[in-house]
Design a protein around this nucleic acid. Sequence first.
DNA 1: GTCCAGGCCAGAC
DNA 2: GTCTGGCCTGGA
Length: 294
Amino acid sequence: MEYNILEIEDKIILKDMEDFQPKDIFECGQAFRWTLEEDGSYTSVAYGKVINVKRDGEDIVLSNTNREDFNNIWYNYFDLARNYGNIKKILSENDPVLKEATEFGQGIRILNQEPFEMIISFIISANNQIPRIKKSIDIISSQYGKLIDNYKGVDYYSFPGPEVLSRVSPEELREVAKVGFRDVRIVETSMMIASGQFNMVSLFDMTRDQGKEELMKLPGVGPKVSDCILLFAYNKPEAFPVDVWVKRVMEYFYLKKDTNVKLIGQEGARLFGNLAGFAQQYLFYFAREQDIGK
DNA sequence: GTCCAGGCCAGAC
DNA sequence: GTCTGGCCTGGA
């Protein structure tokens, strides 16, 4: 995709930017570390950098950054090579539900986030709620990560690597980060990765099914969590995570009630094919923001 | 006090 | 292979 880009001081400005709405992107359930500022912008830390994002009329303003980081990090992170207008158009054809869902979440993009952080974040997400997931991840970062930058008076920390988390005791993790029964899963998964027993990089070259099989060898990673990791870190748009909200919205619009989760996943693949991950995000956001199917 | 939330796991069938 | 109960935590 071609963009009209301006660089001014510490800002990168994407002119006349469509299909990019910060609220839709950062509050659609894929990322846990974006905080809303008083001016409506969002700040987070990724790939060792702190960045602030704001919509300003027709433009998107990225602050606390530069051209080099934009090219090396943020272009890929925000998935700017992908044509979301086209995806929405295809999904909306012959599907009134997705037509409405893509209009509702018109500014959603699927971020390309860091694998280890996604693995641990979604292990924490199991049978958990967003505010608590965010809290645990924040504590883990400030407690075990490195101080990256101070932005608008707030310290931002990197997410720790597997070597660090593999050496923390489950008891300490539970006590400090309030992760509950997920404590052992986090530490054991970190150990498998730190030791080299599990190779995170190899998943980039695998298919969705292969990657899913691999990820499910990690303790705390099942069918839903593995699909989240594949979709949000490994650029596998065929992944179709079925959580309670997707279950509800799929049953409400496409299937009958009390359909088992495995069948819903198969139906997602059948209906949406290699765009299933995008459909999932639009449907999830649509359902959750409006309490559909509950 | 009771219930349950963006699932996983072990055990039973 | 499919189904069920239990699980830390904390807010409703």
